[in-house]
Design a protein around this nucleic acid. Structure first.
Lengths: 96, 96
DNA sequence: TAGATATTTAGAAAAATATCTAAATACAAA
DNA sequence: TTTGTATTTAGATATTTTTCTAAATATCTA
């Protein structure tokens, strides 16, 4: 699962989408309109983010709304925390 | 710079290297010995990590030691923090 | 200096990824 | 049901990334 998350985060377009969703939920079309790449390409990126668990999609009539899945961000945050020196104990937590 | 960092973090071999270095500095050869891929491939990964600012290298005689650059981890941590709900009124309320 | 060890660089092949256009699916409105 | 809008799926191509072997560079030791 970490594999998919980091892979998803490696693309700048996808990180931009995440920052947009942080301001509020959006439809696939609204997201696509903010990029110069084609709608199918944006759809592909949205799917990668979805597979990685970083976003959730929900259809409402004609539209599909995308939402951030913040719980997963918490997990990545934890992954990174292990590397940062918090000057508490020896700060070392192994594996994963 | 974030671009290079996220790119570097997207590969599982490189993340494994980072976890190894977290336990202590290592030479390129010692790192390579722990993978089944060739030394030149590991050398390539080390270079990607170095370009991303995630590790620092220092030659000592015949050997080159690699070390984690924790300050950069702190920066990525900050990037992620923005997405995590810390329940401390930053004004942002998700839709629905 | 010659030989041994540590590591990287060069160049090529294979695999993965991003992107496109065209077509398909899902739903709404008339 | 027909038409229009929203979005995805399919299939192809171009680019990027990973990996390899062979060769080069740097340093140590005898």
């Amino acid at each position: 699962m970490f594999d998919a998350m980091f892979k998803a985060l490696s693309d700048p377009t996808r990180r931009k989408i995440l920052r947009m969703l942080h301001k509020g939920d959006m439809t696939a079309g609204d997201i696509a309109d903010r990029f110069s790449i084609s709608k199918p390409s944006v759809s592909h990126h949205l799917n990668v983010l979805k597979q990685a668990g970083l976003v959730i999609d929900e259809r409402k009539g004609q539209f599909i709304f995308y939402t951030l899945n913040t719980t997963v961000f918490q997990e990545v945050l934890t992954w990174f925390s292990e590397f940062v020196d918090r000057r508490k104990g020896d700060g070392h937590v192994p594996n994963r």
